[in-house]
Design a protein around this nucleic acid. Structure first.
Length: 608
DNA sequence: TTATTTTGTCATGGC
DNA sequence: GGGCCATGACAAAAT
């Protein structure tokens, strides 16, 4: 099944290239990630990332520079975002200047946009290729070879040491038929012992190198990062692949190489070839402006005016102060503050309509099938034509169907695109929205959004959540809201913030688990390496001991006792004192049989 | 249909 | 004291 999928994917890519040749825009990346059909028009908006945290920025890539497929760095999405801003505020008629300017800028933006982003993207891609390409991999491989050579050198040195000692002994004692006097043997023994000192010094040096090598966390971190971004798509080659995503402007994400499983070896040329391919819309490429660009621009215009036409242009009785604040700049101060530590969606697709509303902290009921509880209260207030609720009730309710978020993917959003009023759904949400509109009608609203909508409150839940506390308190106090309304707003804010906090917490927990997993793997690898090192050292030491034993026997066989008889190795040993003097001493009872002791030691080592 | 995972929410504690 | 954040626990939705 995997092979079939692989072949199907490759075939799909080839088919996509053919479609691109004939001018059909295909979003392969989105298709391969299962967000929506590759041929469907991406109608939606920027990523759901309303606020961001560093880990969200780094979620999908080890280096943190990978462009997420949902990344709203496209003018098309920017335009949709502006549209959503207008819609979120109730009516475009409230901001005629801004809206007109925006609409007039569309054509200019079509011509001017995209090239810089794409240029930068390509440069980053090439830069990443240079940093993480096969050259870097080759360097890493060379480093590993050097490390291996170090180990081999250490072991070879040890073996040569033992062999040289033996050869030297043979040369010394075979050169003369008569046994040399002990005074002549002593320097030789000192040389041999000095060699053993060198041998001793070799082991800790080697072990320290081993520690350095094994303690190097880079490899573990890299694999961990790879594992973290591996989700259905093989990202294991990401570090060397670099960012080869081709992202033309206006949302026409033509190809995303990250969705294809290139191997380490063929990725750089493949990426370079694709970058240079006329199939991709590169900055300055004439075909870009002539084909996809204009076509997407046409889609944009159609979509924009279609959406505007759906908004309704009737006037709204907006609170003048709020209106002034919003008209003063489509980015109120509290909404500029959304670049916080979370890239999570505040809005979520509502749970089941039948989900129970069991919050004990507020007094609002589900407003389905006839508003009850708080909704009815709001309605009653508005019907009476008094109170703050009536003010908000005349607001054109925010079209929350366009603001349904269900981004559980911690998507990345570029800082320049985090316009707080843009509550367009992420791509996944787009898919759901498209499907829902075609099949089952508009998406259901979240519980809080339904309440806010029933209240006719001019702010969406994310706006309530992200506005500074000063503005929020001013909102609560300066509007003459009822206790239940204040409780609702407080609950909305509290739940929204806690939702983000929970998502951050879970992400941190996951990262911690993955980090610990990598650490455990690293420690296991280090343990294995140390065990291998110990075995090698023991083997070398045993060999050296054998050589020493042979040398001792050779020396003793050539020595004579006072009666002219050769010394028996079973009765005498050659002892080296601390001062370097070498002497022949009778064996003691505790050390009568070195062979047995040696064998016992070997058995003991084998057990380990 | 069931088991597992994901997500939202609440409660609690610390800052 | 209030707001915010982190986190465990629970329930419901999603897979």
């Amino acid at each position: 099944m995997q092979y079939m999928k692989k072949y199907f994917t490759e075939g799909l890519i080839q088919f996509t290239i053919l479609l691109s040749l004939i001018g059909v825009r295909v979003d392969v990346d989105s298709y391969l990630n299962g967000y929506f059909s590759p041929l469907i028009e991406t109608d939606g908006g920027p990523s759901s990332a309303f606020v961001q945290t560093p880990f969200h920025r780094y979620r999908d890539t080890a280096a943190g520079h990978q462009v997420h497929p949902k990344c709203p760095e496209l003018d098309y999405f920017t335009s949709r975002r502006l549209l959503n801003e207008v819609r979120a505020l109730g009516s475009p008629a409230r901001f005629p200047t801004r809206l007109s300017a925006w609409l007039l800028q569309l054509d200019g933006a079509e011509e001017n946009n995209g090239s810089t982003d794409t240029d930068q993207l390509n440069q980053e891609s090439l830069g990443n290729e240079a940093d993480t390409g096969p050259e870097a991999a080759s360097n890493r491989a060379q480093e590993e070879v050097v490390k291996d050579e170090d180990e081999e050198i250490s072991l070879d040195s040890l073996n040569q040491l033992v062999r040289s000692s033996s050869l030297e002994q043979e040369g010394v004692f075979s050169s003369s038929a008569l046994p040399p006097p002990l005074s002549e043997l002593q320097p030789r023994w000192q040389d041999l012992l000095a060699d053993f000192d060198d041998f001793n010094s070799l082991v800790p040096l080697h072990m320290s190198d081993l520690d350095v090598n094994l303690a190097n966390p880079i490899s573990y971190n890299a694999s961990l990062q790879d594992a973290m971004v591996t989700s259905g798509v093989d990202y294991t080659s990401a570090p060397t692949r670099g960012r080869a995503q081709i992202t033309p402007d206006h949302g026409a994400s033509l190809f995303n190489l990250e969705s294809t499983n290139f191997s380490h070896s063929d990725t750089p040329p493949a990426a370079a070839g694709l970058l240079a391919s006329p199939l991709f819309y590169l900055p300055g490429n004439r075909s870009h402006n002539d084909t996809s660009h204009s076509r997407v621009g046409g889609y944009l215009d159609e979509a924009v005016f279609e959406q505007i036409s759906l908004l309704g242009l009737e006037g709204l009785n907006m609170d003048s102060e709020l209106l002034n604040r919003m008209e003063g700049g489509m980015h109120p101060p509290w909404l500029e503050d959304v670049d916080s530590d979370s890239g999570l969606s505040l809005e979520s697709r509502s749970r089941s309509p039948a989900s129970t509303f069991a919050s004990s902290s507020d007094s609002f009921c589900e407003d389905e099938g006839g508003a009850t509880g708080y909704s009815s209260e709001v309605e009653s207030i508005s019907n009476k034509g008094g109170g703050c609720a009536s003010e908000f009730y005349h607001w054109s309710p925010v079209d929350f169907s366009e603001n349904i978020w269900h981004d559980h993917t911690y998507s990345v959003q570029l800082p320049e695109d985090h316009t707080p009023y843009s509550w367009a759904p992420p791509l996944k949400g787009i898919k759901e929205e498209v499907m829902s509109e075609e099949e089952s009608g508009p998406e259901e609203l979240s519980r809080d959004e339904r309440r806010l909508q029933a209240l006719g409150f001019p702010f969406s839940a994310p706006q309530i959540v992200n506005m500074p506390v000063e503005d929020f308190l001013e909102l609560l106090e300066g509007r003459g809201l009822s206790v239940s309304e204040i409780a609702l707003l407080r609950d909305v804010r509290r739940r929204g913030k806690n939702k983000l906090a929970a998502q951050n917490c879970r992400k941190r927990k996951l990262d911690a688990i993955l980090g610990l997993q990598g650490e455990v793997e690293g420690l296991l690898a280090q343990r294995d390496a140390l065990l291998r090192e110990r075995a090698q050292t023991s083997k070398a030491l045993s060999s050296a001991a054998d050589g020493l034993e042979a040398l001792s026997r050779d020396v003793l066989s050539q020595l004579r006792d006072e009666y002219g008889r050769p010394l028996s190795p079973e009765q005498y040993i050659i002892h080296c004192g601390a001062n370097g003097r070498v002497a022949v001493r009778p064996r003691t009872n505790t050390r009568t049989n070195t062979t047995e002791a040696k064998n016992a030691k070997r058995k003991k080592d084998k057990k380990h």
